[in-house]
Design a protein around this nucleic acid. Structure first.
Length: 434
RNA sequence: UCCGGGGUAGCUCAAUCGGCAGAGCAGCGGACUGUUAAUCCGUUGGUUGAGGGUUCGAGUCCCUCCCCCGGAGCCA
């Protein structure tokens, strides 16, 4: 293992250190040569001066190619001109393996080429920054929920039927039976919430729709908290607190990565509770008055498309909740508004800057008879939902939960044009390799 | 699945009306003591996605197929 890391070089000014890593770039201007070395924690520039180096060390520069693995020794020096503030006066280079013909060069590449080389693209500076922001968001989510008393409960990936009966699922052979890759762990979390009070699952979800947009993956990660004795309003408060905490953590711990991505931080600094709430009815009214003939076509009872969401969210500089959707539009398990049964106690959270829905949540039906009726109305196979109905039979309580899409959250916070760069190895309609 | 755009050197792209397939970068050789995608000089590199057709002649026109990108629907 390496003792010294590029990220910690500030601690070793004036000292000799040994870095183990890869050649990121090199430049040669004659009797002075520069090597950029990355070690996973960061990138540092090493300086080689011909008059100060033994010839055999000086000559090793000629063999270095992009992504050659090496061990570099040198003295750390503070340097204002260097990104990061430190440089290494190289004293020795030990080549581990010369990388011959590294495909990703310093010039521009197209998406297809980069995606074909995703296993190597991950080494690039921006991709490195994105993965570290993703990691910070995941950690922030887990820390927040743990702090709030949630227990992490893992949901199964292989399931016997659709959770919501709406979306297309990936079918797998289950020793002769049909099984499906999970599209949501929610129903299982409802069971677990009756055991632990507050629970969440955090894992992959699968949707087999042939989606081909910048907001969709076939395999994505979702965190799904579920809480007993929590009603609609309290559910929204937890969501806005969690999202605000996530943003705060990224601003605190991943400032450098945001800079690498040239992500403006002012919009993120505004993300503090409470978030604005707009009812579905109000949203329809806003669209009707938008002045855009396409948007004005929408009628009550229709779902929003991406342009509708963008229009609404652009009216606010924070994430915005859209609440009280028509019952017919939403999943079978959502609790109707007691005052208006034609709408449900559900809310979507739209991220700012046109990033669309990052959370979908609701209060769940706790009444046995109503839930049974809904299962029938939605035409779902009742026998598959017996265990789910049991939860309403043995000590039912009001409960609520939500699902937050990790990749969409990363895309928004990192301000990326496409969701495919937010996950290490994206699974898309025409992409399963690498 | 539908609509639109595209496939030319390792990469990113150009090629006028159908008339000798080009440039930048990468690679290779050389110059340069502070470079930040370094710069400068020289140089190698082609089954134009596949198949068929029209033509004296096709990267270019026609037909079939394959692949990619963007958008729609679905949703996180």
């Amino acid at each position: 293992m390496q003792k010294y890391r590029v990220a910690d070089l500030g601690k070793y000014v004036g000292q000799e250190v040994e870095l183990k890593g890869w050649l990121y770039n090199k430049r040669d201007i004659g009797k002075v040569r520069f090597i950029l070395v990355r070690d996973g924690s960061g990138i540092v520039q090493g300086v080689m001066v011909k008059n100060n180096l033994p010839e055999e060390v000086w000559d090793k520069f000629d063999d270095l190619t992009l992504e050659t693995s090496l061990i570099v020794r040198g003295t750390v020096r503070e340097e204002k001109r260097a990104p990061g503030g430190y440089e290494l006066d190289v004293t020795d280079i030990e080549i581990f393996q010369i990388a011959d013909g590294y495909p990703i060069t310093k010039k521009s590449h197209g998406v297809e080429f980069l995606m074909d080389h995703r296993h190597l693209w991950l080494r690039s500076k921006k991709q490195w920054a994105i993965m570290r922001i993703r990691d910070e968001i995941q950690s922030a989510i887990m820390d927040f929920l743990r702090e709030q008393g949630f227990v992490r409960i893992d949901a199964p990936i292989l399931t016997s039927s659709a959770a919501e009966g709406t979306t297309t699922l990936f079918e797998v052979d289950y020793h002769g039976d049909k099984a499906y890759l999970s599209q949501s762990g929610q129903l299982y979390m409802e069971a677990a919430a009756m055991a632990h009070g507050k629970v969440y699952c955090f894992g992959p979800a699968f949707r087999a729709e042939k989606s081909k947009t910048r907001r969709h993956l076939l395999e994505f990660w979702m965190v799904e908290p579920e809480m007993a004795w929590v009603t609609f309003e309290e559910n929204l408060e937890i969501q806005e607190n969690m999202v605000s905490y996530i943003v705060e953590r990224v601003l605190k711990n991943r400032r450098n990565e945001l800079e690498i991505l040239e992500r403006p931080i002012e919009p993120l600094e505004k993300v503090k509770p409470p978030f604005p709430r707009v009812t579905y009815d109000e949203a329809i009214e806003m669209l009707k008055k938008s002045g855009d003939p396409e948007l004005e076509k929408i009628e009550w009872g229709e779902d929003f498309g991406a342009p509708h969401e963008t229009y609404i969210s652009n009216k606010f500089d924070k994430p915005v909740f859209i609440t009280h959707f028509p019952t017919k539009m939403k999943a079978f398990y959502m609790q109707p508004d007691p005052n208006r049964p034609e709408v449900v106690l559900a809310a979507d959270l739209l991220a700012p800057e046109g990033y669309g829905e990052i959370i979908g949540g609701s209060e769940r039906i706790y009444d046995y008879d109503l839930l049974k009726q809904r299962i029938q109305e939605w035409g779902l196979p009742e026998e598959d939902y017996q265990w789910y109905l049991d939860l309403r039979k043995y000590g039912t309580v009001p409960h609520s939960g939500f699902g937050l899409g990790l990749e969409r959250t990363v895309a928004w916070i990192a301000k990326l044009p496409h969701i495919r760069e937010t996950i290490p190895f994206p699974r898309m309609l025409h992409r399963m390799v690498p």
